[in-house]
Design a protein around this nucleic acid. Structure first.
Lengths: 223, 223
DNA sequence: AAAAACCTTACAGCAATTGTAAGTGGTGCG
DNA sequence: CGCACCACTTACAATTGCTGTAAGGTTTTT
């Protein structure tokens, strides 16, 4: 059962949306507070996010931008204002669909279903900036080029991508890869870093992995 | 540069669509005859297909259905009739977006661009029925399960998927895999068929590869 | 200049993949 | 029936690629 997360501050409309999706067999979760919407959305593990534009605090556009930078969850924007400029802006931010209220429930759920279908194909994709990686096969994609990394290097990159753009300590990476149990030579991480960088170089991403001396590693998108 | 294939019989509108896309930096190709539209569309190697519903011969809906069965090219349906039922039907067939004429050029290109962006993530996907495969990594996906095949088996499956639902002779498969140059023991194909079947069994697709005695192999979708 | 942090290269064990070989199973025709 | 033909399966060995260890080099900081 797919989970649809609804971000809408108007209580009446929120309930209506919830019912619409539940009636069609989805699990519908609404955001209750708008203080840390990003956190709440992620914790609900959405397969799809339905986003209102006018929200208290952060606007829907900002949320959309934030989500698209780090996740590969499809986003459907719903708004009362029927303005082409809003639609163009939303699509430019990476929104997957844009509908205006009032919207026929059937249209909404059909569009939602379409997005879910499409994104089934890209599930398990980790994203950071323009770079994407299939977390199953460790195929890293940038534009129209790609490399398939070996498992160890892929896992390292996955950790870095999930935390992007933060710095991740060597200790954390080591723990994520080999489990913090016993002592593991720190060198092995460095060796794999070299290998990872060499492989990323094949698609022009050599300098994407950056060292923060004394702190750890992080990713940096170069333009 | 992305290629947009336009399927529209009205000459005036066709030109307008072409110009709209060319102005935005795409390569726009129009279908000239409607006798074998499928063939013409595929030969143009589209990154996106813009499809009118009312066409001489096959309807846009039929074309959409056909395309979605065998390819993973995004399809945008454009129609003059503003009917919710048409939209629901189109989306149900697998269409990726649905717009009504007249449509603002900016809206059209923004929607098109979004589809291209989304499908960048699923490029090089081969499809046959419900089964999909990443042709780079040989990751085979069915619903929410997957297996990653070794190269040789992946190549065999790719040939079979591309020809689905036709039968492909052993000779053709062998030629595609090892090049028709020298003589290759036919046994090697059979060995890999066994291996392929065993691996497909892991996601419940054991009986998907069918033997046509004396003719070759083909795929069969079981329900 | 010395210490600390990080990078690189070489090597060997291990696992996965691939083709060869040899034999088994099943189908259809005389 | 039984033989011929086609298809399937299992076992084995060569090869390749991945992984961690070791050892030494480079850069940065104090």
């Amino acid at each position: 059962m797919a989970t649809v997360v609804i971000v809408e501050d108007d209580g009446y409309l929120r309930e209506e949306l919830e019912h619409t999706f539940i009636r069609e067999g989805y699990r519908a979760v609404s955001i209750s507070s708008f203080e840390e919407p990003e956190k709440e959305i992620l914790e609900s593990e959405p397969d799809l996010v339905v986003l209102d534009v006018n929200l208290p605090g952060k606007s829907g556009f900002e949320l959309c931008k934030w989500m698209k930078l780090r996740t590969s969850v499809p986003i459907l924007i719903l708004t009362a204002r029927d303005a082409l400029s809003d639609e163009l802006y939303a699509l430019g931010l990476g929104a997957d669909d844009f509908l205006t209220k009032p919207c026929h429930p059937k249209r909404l759920t059909a569009r939602a279903e379409r997005l879910l279908q499409t994104y089934k194909k890209v599930r398990n994709l980790v994203q950071a900036g323009d770079v994407m990686m299939d977390a199953d096969t460790y195929k890293v994609i940038l534009g129209n080029r790609y490399v398939t990394l070996p498992e160890t290097e892929g896992k390292i990159l996955k950790v870095l991508m999930e935390r992007y753009p933060s710095v991740v300590s060597k200790k954390e990476i080591t723990a994520a890869l080999w489990g913090g149990e016993e002592y593991v030579d720190e060198n092995i991480l460095q060796v794999n870093m070299t290998r990872l960088r060499k492989n990323l170089d094949h698609i022009g991403l050599k300098s994407m992995v950056k060292t923060e001396r004394g702190k750890g590693y992080c990713l940096e998108m170069i333009e």
